[in-house]
Structures are given as structure tokens and as C-alpha cells.
């Protein structure tokens, strides 16, 4: 027969910490932050060098003819122009610049009033075509 001693009674009456309220608050906080967080789309980047038009022409005039793509509005629509040829899509531009030598890099002259997305597409086309050195030249 086991007799209930003082020691065994103490073991039974041990202190218990009630975690229920803390878990409630924690879950409420979690739900609040999950709901209130703005959903951000994944971003990447393009890193062109920056140069003004004057810098980009004077620096290279003595060395070689720079390779330039002009991004402007032609006949009311945005267009890419390279050595007199006009392209209206990123894919066509990429195809045109792919055979060019890569070492001199590529200058992209961006005129005003062109949609930003169209201008950035030219930088992407240059990267995709294998140009490491791409320079953004704003043309005012």
C-alpha cells in the first residue's frame, strides 16, 4: 500500500504556466502582419553606365565609331534606330545587335517622350545580346 506522503503531494501540485492567452495574442499578431503586408513582386535590375550625350561623343570620337541605338518617337510611335535601320520590337532589335562586336559596348541614346518600358527594353536587349558594357545616354 502506497501512503500519500508530503513529498508526493508536492509533486502533484506543481506549478503549471498557462500559455493559452499568449498563443492567442501571438496568432493574432501573425494574422495581422500577414494580412497587412503589401504583396511585393520579385524584382531584378539592369545596371547601365550613365553618360551625357556630350561625354559619350567626345570621349570616343578619336578612338572609334561608337555603336549607338537611338530610342525615340518616329511617326508617332516609339522606335529603335541603329545605323539608319528602324525596329519597333525588342526581339528585332536584339537580332540586329547580336552580330555587333561586344568589346566597344553599346550606347543607348534615349530621347524624351518615349515610354520608359520601351527604353528599358533596349537595355535588356543589349544585355541579352551579350553586351557587358551598356551606357544609358539621356537626350534632351
Amino acid at each position: 500500500m502506497r501512503i500519500r506522503t508530503r513529498q508526493s503531494r508536492r509533486r502533484i501540485d506543481r506549478i503549471t504556466l498557462n500559455l493559452a492567452s499568449m498563443i492567442d495574442v501571438t496568432f493574432l499578431l501573425l494574422i495581422y502582419f500577414m494580412v497587412s503586408t503589401v504583396l511585393a513582386r520579385p524584382e531584378d535590375r539592369l545596371s547601365p553606365s550613365l553618360q551625357t550625350r556630350r561625354d559619350s561623343t567626345t570621349a570616343l570620337i578619336s578612338d572609334f565609331q561608337p555603336q549607338r541605338v537611338e530610342v525615340s518617337i518616329l511617326d508617332g510611335a516609339p522606335a529603335y534606330r541603329i545605323v539608319g535601320r528602324v525596329f519597333r520590337s525588342q526581339a528585332d532589335l536584339r537580332e540586329a545587335i547580336e552580330p555587333l562586336p561586344k568589346d566597344p559596348g553599346l550606347f543607348i541614346d534615349v530621347h524624351d517622350r518615349v515610354p520608359v518600358g520601351f527604353a528599358v527594353a533596349a537595355i535588356q536587349a543589349a544585355r541579352d545580346a551579350g553586351f557587358e558594357q551598356v551606357t544609358y545616354v539621356p537626350v534632351k
Binding site: 524584382e43 531584378d44 553606365s49 550613365l50 528599358v120 535588356q124 544609358y136
Partner: peptide, 19 residues
């Protein structure tokens, strides 16, 4: 460019991905 900044990163949104 006038301040001497030589390059900038242009942020793009990667198409066809959600996050």
C-alpha cells in the same frame, strides 16, 4: 551624371513570377 555618379541600377519586375 552631373554629380559624377557613373552608373545606376534600373529596377525591373521579373515577368511570370509571383512572390
Amino acid at each position: 551624371q552631373g554629380m559624377g555618379v557613373g552608373g545606376a541600377r534600373l529596377a525591373t519586375e521579373v515577368p511570370g513570377q509571383t512572390g
